[in-house]
Design a protein around this nucleic acid. Structure first.
Lengths: 192, 192
DNA sequence: AGTTCACATGAACAGACGTTCAGCACTTAA
DNA sequence: TTAAGTGCTGAACGTCTGTTCATGTGAACT
C-alpha cells in the first residue's frame, strides 16, 4: 500500500481538505477527518502542509488566483464597457457555481477573516478593474454620470450577494442574466 | 457576590455570547469564554440555556424577529412601491450597521447552516414581501415588466452582498443611497 | 433560628482537537 | 546484501472542548 505518488497524495489532500472545510468550516473540519477522506494518515498530512492553517491558506490562494486570471482575460480582451461588465458578472456567477465548495468555505468559521490580507488585496485588485471599466463607460457617455467608485462597490456587493444566496439556498438562486439586466437598466420604467 | 438578578445575568450572557460568536464563530467561541465575559461561572450558563446550541439559536431568533418587525412596519405604512423598496433597502442597511455583530456571526462557522430552518423561513417571508411590492410596481406601470420573482432575488442578493461587504471591509462600504439609485435606475444612460 | 429556594460555583469527566515522532515498508543505488 | 532515502503510519501528548453535579451562598420566608 506504500510508495504512492507524492503528487497524487497532495492532490488528494487538497481535494479532501476543500470538501471538509466547505462542509464544516475551519474549526469544524478536523485534520483526522481530512486525512481519512484523503486516504492518508494524520501524520501524512504534515508531510505536505506545515499545519492546518497553511493548508487552508494554500487552498484560498489557489482559488483566488484562478479567479483573478479569469477576470484578467475578460478585461484584456473586451473593449466595450457594457460587454465587459456583463461578462465579468457572468464569469463571477459561473465561477461561483463551479466552485461552490470554495465559496462555502469562505462564508464559515474563520473562513472570512482567515487570510484576510490576501483576500483584501484580491478584492482591491478586482475593485480597481471594475472601477476602471465603469469610468470608461461614464467617459464614453454610455453610463449615467454616477460615482464610479460607489457603483463598483455596489456591483461587487451584488456579486457577493449572489454568492451568499447560493450558500443559503442553492436551488433557488437568481439568474445571471437578470442580474446584469437589473444593474444595467434598473428597475424603473421611466429613466429621468 | 451572590443573589444578583437572574434577568441581569441572562442579559449579560446574551451580550457576551453575541460578542464571542461574532468574534470567533460558533466553534471558535467557547462556553468558558462566554461565561468569563458575562461575569458568571461556566455552570451558570447552563442555568439559563440548555446548551451551546440553544444559546446560539436563541440569539439568532431574537435578531431575525427584530428585523421582521421593522420590515412589516415599512410595508404596512408605505403605499408607493418605489418608496417602499427604497425604505426596505435603507432599513436593511441601517439594521446591518446597527447589528454588525449579529451579522458577522452569520457569516462564520456553523453560522449560516446553523438554525437553517428558521432562517429559510425568515428569508421566504422577506422574499414574499418584496416580490409583492415589485409586482405592484410592475402592475402600476412604474417598474419595467420584469419577472418580479427574479428581481426580488437580485435585490435580496444585493442586500446580502452589502452585509458581506461590511464584514470584509467595514470602513469602505457602499452607500445605501447609491444602492437604491442603481437598483432603481440602472447603470445605463439610455433606457430602451 | 431554622428552613427554603433561587442563584451560582468550579473541579471533574469524557472526548475531540492539532501536532509530533519513533518506527515501518518499500524502492533505488551501491 | 547492505545502505540510503522517500512515503507513510498511528499511538501518544498536551490542551482544549461542552457538559455535569455536588456543593455553597445569602436573601426571604416561617
Amino acid at each position: 500500500m506504500n510508495r504512492r505518488s507524492a503528487l497524487k497524495s497532495k492532490e488528494n489532500i487538497k481535494k479532501a481538505a476543500l470538501e471538509a472545510f466547505s462542509k464544516y468550516g475551519y474549526n469544524g473540519a478536523s485534520m483526522r477527518m481530512i486525512a481519512h477522506e484523503a486516504g492518508i494518515s494524520v501524520g501524512g498530512l504534515y508531510l505536505y502542509f506545515k499545519n492546518k492553517e497553511e493548508l487552508c491558506l494554500f487552498l484560498i490562494k489557489e482559488k483566488l488566483n484562478e479567479f483573478s486570471k479569469n477576470a484578467q482575460i475578460i478585461f484584456e480582451n473586451v473593449e466595450d464597457p457594457i460587454e465587459a461588465i456583463s461578462r465579468y458578472i457572468n464569469m463571477s456567477i459561473e465561477y461561483a457555481k463551479r466552485h461552490r465548495e470554495f465559496i462555502i468555505t469562505q462564508t464559515r468559521d474563520q473562513g472570512f477573516t482567515f487570510g484576510m490580507d490576501i483576500k483584501r488585496e484580491f478584492f482591491e485588485d478586482q475593485k480597481k478593474l471594475i472601477k476602471n471599466i465603469i469610468q470608461q463607460g461614464i467617459d464614453k457617455g454610455l453610463f449615467r454620470p454616477l460615482d464610479a467608485f460607489e457603483v463598483t462597490k455596489v456591483i461587487m456587493g451584488v456579486i457577493r450577494g449572489y454568492i451568499l444566496s447560493f450558500v443559503m439556498d442553492p436551488d433557488n438562486v437568481f439568474d445571471a442574466e437578470y442580474c446584469c439586466e437589473l444593474i444595467l437598466k434598473g428597475l424603473l420604467k421611466e429613466n429621468p
